[in-house]
Amino acid sequence: MSKPVIATAHFTGCFGCHMSILDIDERILDLVELVEFNKSPINDIKNFTKPVDIGIIEGGISNDENAEILMEFRKHCKILVAIGACALTGGVPSMRNLVPLKECLEEAYLNGPTVKSENTGIIPNDPDIPVLLDRVYPCHEVVKIDYFLPGCPPSADTIWNALVALLKGEPLNLDYELIKYD
C-alpha cells in the first residue's frame, strides 16, 4: 500500500507553524516512514506531482499569489487543514485591515518618516511582485477548509496528534494543555 501523501504551504505569516511542525523532533523520522511529502517548503518541491491526501496550510491570504496557491492546494488535496492564528483569522498581518490598503502603501512608500525625501518614493509595481489584496483574508474565506488547528503556533504535539488521528481515521483528543492559550 502506498503511503499517504502530504503537502504543506506557507502564506502570509511568520513561518512559525512550519517551525512547530519541525519541533516534533525525532518523531520526524517516524513521520517520514508514515507519509510521503509532496509540494512543501520543507523539501522545496515547487509543484504538485501527484494527488495529495492532506494539505497543511499556514498563514493568511494577503496577495494574489497566496490566493492562487491556496486554490491550487484545494484542487490537489483531498483534505485541507488550516493551522495557526494567521490561517484561521488573518492573525497579526491582518492588523493592516484596519487601514485602507491605499493609505498603508502611501504611508510605507511615499509619506512615511523613513522615506528619504519628498516626491522620490514609489509604490512598488514590478510585475514579479504579487499584488496585495484589499485586506488579509483568513483561508476559509477563500476556499473550503476541512479542519482547523488554532494556536500561535499550535504546539508540535498538537500537530502531531492531529496528523496521526487524521491518518488513522480516529477521533482527535487533545489534552487541555495543548489547546490552552493564555
Binding site: 486554490m71 484545494r74 502603501l105 502611501e106 509604490i123 496585495l132 489584496l133 484589499d134 474565506e141 477563500v142
Partner: peptide, 21 residues
C-alpha cells in the same frame, strides 16, 4: 471547494490601482 463569495479580481483592484500597474 472554491468559495464563490471570494472575488480575487475585486480583492486585487485597490492594490493594482495604488501601485499604478
Amino acid at each position: 471547494g472554491k468559495l464563490l463569495t471570494f472575488d480575487l479580481q475585486k480583492a486585487m483592484k485597490v492594490g493594482i490601482e495604488a501601485s499604478g500597474r
